[in-house]
């Protein structure tokens, strides 16, 4: 979050219309840097958007056991910026809140804190046994997956049909497969490269 404040400051000083965006989880919202960054951004009216992805789990500690208030977006009030809490897994609401935040930042209106409620389907790391998680929780959460939900909205509005859906999925699968192939076929780096790029 602090480097995002700096990037926003640079945009302001250099007269660019760039907006910096920092993403973090609800667990990180209890770090000192969260509060320092919001204060600095609010004080200096920086064109920066802080996006808190609240999936309720910080590795094994759930939000009820880590955070004094239920809504991280409420903390924005203490730092002179709007705090927007987006309903769980609602992509269109995210789009709307982000658009308003970008417009506000570009107009000199300063920062915005957006809290997006969402879900975590997997463990925090490879090999996480997730013993802390209620059995069957993920199966329940998957029923509200935002991707098919968004597809449903787009179909209802006539913006998506089976053909377009298949094309889009095909393109994404091809891109990912290509990236996997590239990674698997690439040689490992020469050990001497470990010593490069410490300094520019």
């Amino acid at each position: 979050m602090p480097p995002a404040c700096g990037a926003a400051l640079a945009a302001k000083r250099l007269g660019k219309d760039s907006v910096a965006v920092a993403f973090f989880g609800e667990g990180a919202a209890n770090q000192g840097t969260f509060h320092e960054s919001l204060n600095l951004a609010g004080l200096w009216k920086l064109p920066v958007i802080f996006v808190c992805e609240d999936n309720k789990w910080a590795i094994s500690v759930d939000k009820d056991h880590s955070t004094a208030i239920p809504c991280v977006a409420d903390r924005a009030a203490a730092y002179a910026m709007p705090g927007i809490a987006v309903a769980r897994n609602d992509a269109l609401e995210v789009f709307k809140a982000a658009g308003e935040a970008v417009a506000r930042a570009r107009k000199g209106g300063g920062p915005t804190l957006i809290e997006v409620k969402t879900d975590r389907y997997m463990g925090h790391f490879q090999g996480d046994a997730e013993v802390y998680r209620p059995k069957g929780e993920v199966d329940q959460l998957r029923k509200d997956d935002p991707i098919p939900a968004l597809a449903g909205v787009l179909r209802a509005r006539g913006l998506l049909d089976d053909g377009k859906d298949a094309t889009m999925h095909g393109r994404v699968h091809a891109d990912v497969s290509k990236a996997f192939d590239f990674a698997r076929q690439s040689a490992y780096p020469d050990p001497r490269e470990a010593l490069e790029h410490v300094f520019a």
């Binding site: 979050m1 602090p2 480097p3 995002a4 404040c5 700096g6 990037a7 926003a8 400051l9 640079a10 945009a11 000083r13 250099l14 760039s18 910096a20 000192g32 840097t33 320092e36 960054s37 204060n39 600095l40 004080l43």
Partner: peptide, 22 residues
């Protein structure tokens, strides 16, 4: 700056990445 060394030293990193010399 406010008494927020993490914020403004981190901001120096971000500003430098965007072309300033803080």
């Amino acid at each position: 700056t406010p008494i927020s060394e993490s914020a403004f030293i981190g901001a120096a990193t971000g500003a430098a990445a965007e072309g300033m010399r803080p």
